[in-house]
Design a protein around this nucleic acid. Structure first.
Length: 740
DNA sequence: CCTGAACGCTTTTTT
DNA sequence: AGCGTTCAGG
């Protein structure tokens, strides 16, 4: 018998994880051990072997990105588009189910899914009767408590007095109940509800549960260590089929559990064997990603954690020794940024693509130093995970306009935009509208229309509000005649929303107008407005096609699941990493999670890993001495090479010349081996040949700084007087000469 | 309703 | 220190 092509070139453990289709299976997949491949191949294998039809397999991921990738890879193996699959995020799958059974929890199938802003606005209204001191008990904190309850699968009635935390004078439970009631009245759900409602339905309606038991013969779960309690309950309900085996396969890595702070329970993965008796456990430990030194460093570090399921990454490749992990001490955060940028320049000069280099930080504030330095040096970069497209104010506003357009009863959308741009609607006016709406038993939008009609509102404000109502109804007419793209364009135009940004003098205003155009463009990909909005509420990411080669700067959390040839891990100092706050709040558990985060960071690197720590760092206002992170001591010496033990000397060297040790200088050639010197010389020559002549006086263009004239030209480093940005030292390889 | 001043916060993030 | 948000007063 010949091996089917999709099962070729798999190691025995991977093969076991794929072919053990019957009965519960836990796949403990270390970083870089081919987890995604196993998951997708297993899925395809179940289909190709005829064990199940596409709709009889439930496959769950955490992010849309993971779901998308999985779908693509399955399509590739099957050689046809993977359609009709129950493959998606926990939330998207629950939303799909809930639309079928919404009436069981007092909703209709057309329920609205709220975003974070809507949730807060609603909560703000709900807490009013309690007169909660929002100074002492901030709304987001309360929202967080409610969300944690939902994460744990607790409905308001399930919250015992003991559970009712000391927040909002002990009213949290009651407020939660009122919030849920209000959501039902609005026929709306927040993200937590999608899971919570489905669990409730599956528990209370055996007929519904049975229907899914019959349908889902196989269940696949990715990143199981990140599941929270409701997600676990949902999976358990679906997997435990009376009189039948649980064909549930969970893939995860307890060493990569880094989301406990948002409700994830590592215990879920640790408890798998008890939950599903007779479970098979497969360990994937052969790592095909990183060098032996990087793996050794990671293994040494993570061995300091207790309560692990136990798993040791082994190099899967023969050629995998490579360089040792470098630990570099520097003076301060500026030196750290300089050091990293210098090394990036050197790597780039040696031909390493920038897209294969990443700087991974513990917290967002650390990115600033790097951003500044990268701009200065002219190295193309991208900060991953800033404000996402769909979270920008202008995008949310525009989406609210669209929601108000398709659904005149969407009060939350209406409230968001009724005074954007300013139409003289403040809290008082809105209050009045609410009173009227309740009296007339109709939503806010028609109420406002009626109030204007009946002259209950007068003056300039009334005119503006009338325009707003007219724009909405006008766009509704356009929607029927000319389609949704034109309708939305018209609405944003006629309502004065686009003009509001066009007339705004803030520096970011033009960008916002551009974003709005991009949003309208995206609209064309969907047949109807409704489908677009459904997509947006569940798939809150835009895969910005990264055309160009750029260095990635992101948080360690954001880097999970990614890999790079070269990784820099700055800020390994006590207080920063491990973070002081985690230590204070989470104690030893917190420390262990920080250590897992460090483990995630290390295992992102394929070939080169450099860890940095600074002797002093500015915390808020003042400079503070900082101690090297305890994690540095936990890296086995045999895999590590330590540099810059004397931070003062390091600082002096850094200041002496920006490009002193870059590939473009000759002055360190003396200390290089002849071979390296020769290779560098060739590189320089190639560079010189490929780089057009840039001399003093040449007019040039730079991606970041615009047009300018060269005032000093060295090899590599060039001083340019830019028209807009003044005099800057930049790399000549990023300059484009402009012919006069 | 809009503006400036005062206040207070400052880890990680998906859906 | 710097930013964003809230509050008091015009």
């Amino acid at each position: 018998m010949t091996t089917p092509s999709h099962l070729e070139r798999l190691n025995p453990e991977q093969l076991a994880a794929i072919e053990t289709t019957e009965g519960p299976l836990l796949v403990l997949a270390g970083a870089g051990t081919g987890k995604t491949r196993v998951l997708t191949t297993r899925f395809a294998h179940i289909l190709l072997s005829g064990r199940a039809k596409p709709w009889q397999v439930l496959a769950v991921t955490f992010t849309n990105k993971a779901a998308r990738e999985m779908r693509e890879r399955i399509s590739f193996i099957l050689g046809a588009p993977a359609e009709g699959l129950w493959l998606g995020t926990f939330h998207a799958l629950c939303a799909r189910m809930l639309r079928r059974h919404a009436e069981h929890v007092g909703l209709t199938s057309g329920f609205l899914i709220l975003d974070t802003d809507d949730q807060l606005r609603l909560l703000k209204q709900v807490i009013e009767p309690w007169r909660v001191d929002v100074k002492r008990w901030p709304l987001p904190g309360l929202m967080g408590i409610i969300q944690r309850w939902k994460d744990r699968g607790l409905t308001p009635d399930a919250i015992t007095p003991a559970e009712n935390v000391d927040y909002a004078d002990g009213h949290a439970r009651a407020i939660y109940a009122a919030y849920q009631t209000r959501l039902r009245e609005l026929n709306a759900c927040d993200f937590g509800d999608l899971m919570l409602h489905m669990v409730e339905i599956l528990r209370k309606h055996p007929d519904v549960l049975e229907q899914y038991h019959r349908m889902f013969r196989y269940i696949l779960v990715d990143e199981y260590q990140d599941t929270n309690t409701v997600q676990y309950l949902w999976l358990r309900l679906l997997a435990r089929r009376p009189g039948d085996v649980s064909n549930i396969c969970c893939v995860g890595d307890d060493d990569q559990s880094i989301y406990s702070w948002r409700g994830a329970e590592v215990e879920n993965i640790l408890r798998f064997e008890q939950d599903f008796p007779g479970a098979t456990i497969v360990r994937l430990e052969r790592n095909y990603r990183s060098t032996a030194h990087i793996l050794g460093a990671a293994a040494g570090l993570i061995s300091h954690n207790d309560g692990r399921l136990g798993k040791t990454l082994r190099p899967g490749r023969e050629d995998a020794d490579g360089e040792k992990v470098r630990v570099v001490g520097v003076w301060d955060s500026d030196a750290e940024a300089r050091e990293i940028c210098m090394r990036i320049e050197r790597l780039h000069g040696e031909g390493h693509p920038l897209g294969e280099i990443a700087i991974l930080v513990r917290a967002g504030f650390q990115t600033r130093a790097f951003e500044e330095r990268l701009v200065q040096t002219g190295i193309p970069y991208r900060i991953v995970g800033g404000v996402r497209f769909y979270e920008r104010a202008e995008i949310r506003d525009a989406l609210a306009y669209m929601r108000a357009l398709v659904n005149p009863a969407d009060d939350l959308a209406f409230e968001r935009i009724v005074n954007v741009p300013k139409r003289g609607v403040g809290t008082a006016a809105l209050q009045k509208m609410h009173v009227q709406a309740r009296a007339r038993q109709q939503p806010l939008a028609p109420t406002l229309a009626a109030m204007i009609e009946e002259k209950l509102i007068k003056g300039k404000s009334a005119d503006k509000q009338a325009e707003f109502i007219a724009a909405l109804s006008g766009a509704r007419a356009t929607l029927a005649k000319e389609g949704h793209v034109v309708a939305v364009e018209t609405l944003l135009e006629e309502s004065g929303y686009l003009d509001m940004w066009r007339n705004d003098t803030a520096p970011d205003a033009p960008g916002r107008v551009e974003n709005l155009h991009e949003l309208v463009r995206a609209l064309a990909d969907f047949p109807t407005l409704g489908e677009f909005l459904e997509h947006v509420s569940l798939v809150m990411d835009t895969e910005g096609a990264s055309e160009e080669q750029k260095v990635s700067v992101m948080t360690l959390h954001g880097a999970k699941g990614l890999e790079f040839d070269t990784v820099f891990l700055p800020g390994w100092e006590e207080g920063v990493f491990p973070s002081q706050r985690t230590l204070d709040e989470g104690g030893n558990k917190g420390l262990e999670e920080e250590r897992r985060l460090a483990y995630v960071g290390i295992t992102r690197a394929r070939h080169r890993l450099t860890i940095l720590h600074a002797s002093s760092r500015r915390i808020y206002a003042n400079w503070q001495e900082s101690m090297p992170s305890r994690f540095l001591d936990e890296l086995p010496d045999e895999h590590v090479e330590r540099e810059g033990e004397n931070a003062t000397r390091q600082a002096r060297r850094d200041h002496s010349g920006l490009f002193s040790s870059s590939v473009f200088s000759d002055d360190i050639s003396g200390s290089m081996s002849p071979l390296v010197a020769k290779r560098r010389k060739r590189m320089q020559e190639e560079l010189a040949a490929s780089t057009p002549q840039i001399k003093v006086g040449t007019r040039v263009f730079h991606q970041k700084f615009g047009y300018g004239v060269v005032i000093e030209a060295d090899r590599g480093a060039t001083e340019v007087s830019f028209e807009k940005s003044g005099i800057k030292r930049v790399m000549s390889s990023y300059l484009q000469p402009i012919a006069d």
